[in-house]
């Protein structure tokens, strides 16, 4: 901790306790995922048997596939809409209904899931009755619901990046003869790409994580991974879920570490510059 002389001792204690609180349960989960016993809480030796059972569990696997596709589609479209919304918020001068627009961008960040889920379901039912579309609920309706709340989070990420962006970079490009569109693709987009990537990842994890909204708007035939996990967890502890959790935690940690190492490298390089 020698590198952080700026952190007061009280904060340091809180940080340590806070991190213990955040990470201890996950460590326990990972340890028990290698438990041989069927009784989740009694240690009966090391085994990877539950990982095997997890991958043989067809319901779990098909739900996982569905969730991954859903998260991918959600993240991709959310990034486009979220970036557009962030451009509107940061770049376009006040227009008459900007306040309403701002409200619709910030409110989904805090709206309780049960309200969002119920209201979207009622919309879909109403639309199906009057317009005949969507004929059935499933992938499409969950995707619409997820894009709606994920784009708000992407907007937060993107608008903070766009706000920091030196506007004279874009003006310089225009001054050197680039068109507005050319400027966006040659200058703005490459510079905000890291933010786009983290916005995409955020939307991906949010979509992968959602249980409540998907439960409302999913049809009887479509099941996402959280829905499967929820119904098995509701009945009690399940060793397969332990294995799944361990896999998830380890992959997220790997991605997180990678991101950290990349920012570290960037910072190092920036510090090496002269002047």
């Amino acid at each position: 901790m020698a590198q952080s002389p700026g952190i007061p001792r009280f904060s340091r204690i809180c940080l340590s306790l806070g991190f213990f609180f955040l990470y201890a349960p996950m460590v326990v989960l990972i340890v028990y995922s290698f438990n041989a016993s069927e009784r989740v809480n009694i240690w009966a030796g090391f085994s990877t048997r539950w990982y095997g059972e997890l991958f043989r569990d067809d319901a779990m696997m098909s739900a996982m596939w569905m969730s991954l596709r859903l998260a991918f589609a959600t993240a991709t479209v959310s990034v486009v809409f979220g970036t557009l919304a962030a451009l509107v918020l940061t770049r376009v001068r006040n227009f008459r209904t900007k306040t309403l627009f701002g409200g619709m961008v910030t409110a989904p960040l805090v709206m309780p899931d049960v309200i969002t889920g119920l209201s979207l379901l009622l919309l879909f039912v109403g639309m199906a009755n009057t317009l005949g579309w969507p004929a059935e609920r499933g992938f499409l309706t969950i995707w619409i619901a997820h894009v709606t709340f994920c784009m708000a989070f992407v907007t937060v990420v993107m608008s903070s990046r766009l706000r920091e962006l030196d506007r004279s970079l874009e003006e310089a490009a225009m001054d050197l003869g680039a068109s507005r569109l050319g400027t966006f693709f040659q200058i703005t987009l490459p510079i905000i790409t890291p933010a786009l990537a983290s916005g995409w990842l955020l939307a991906f994890t949010l979509s992968l994580d959602d249980l409540v909204i998907a439960s409302f708007v999913a049809g009887p035939a479509s099941t996402t991974l959280p829905m499967v996990v929820f119904s098995s967890v509701r009945l009690g502890l399940s060793p397969q879920v332990n294995a799944l959790a361990a896999l998830l935690i380890l992959s997220v940690t790997a991605v997180g570490m990678l991101a950290y190492l990349m920012t570290l490298r960037d910072e190092r390089r920036r510090q090496r510059q002269p002047g």
């Binding site: 996950m26 994890t205 998830l248």
Partner: peptide, 9 residues
Amino acid sequence: WTSFLIRIY
């Protein structure tokens, strides 16, 4: 970033 459900679990 890890599943919310898993953390409750």
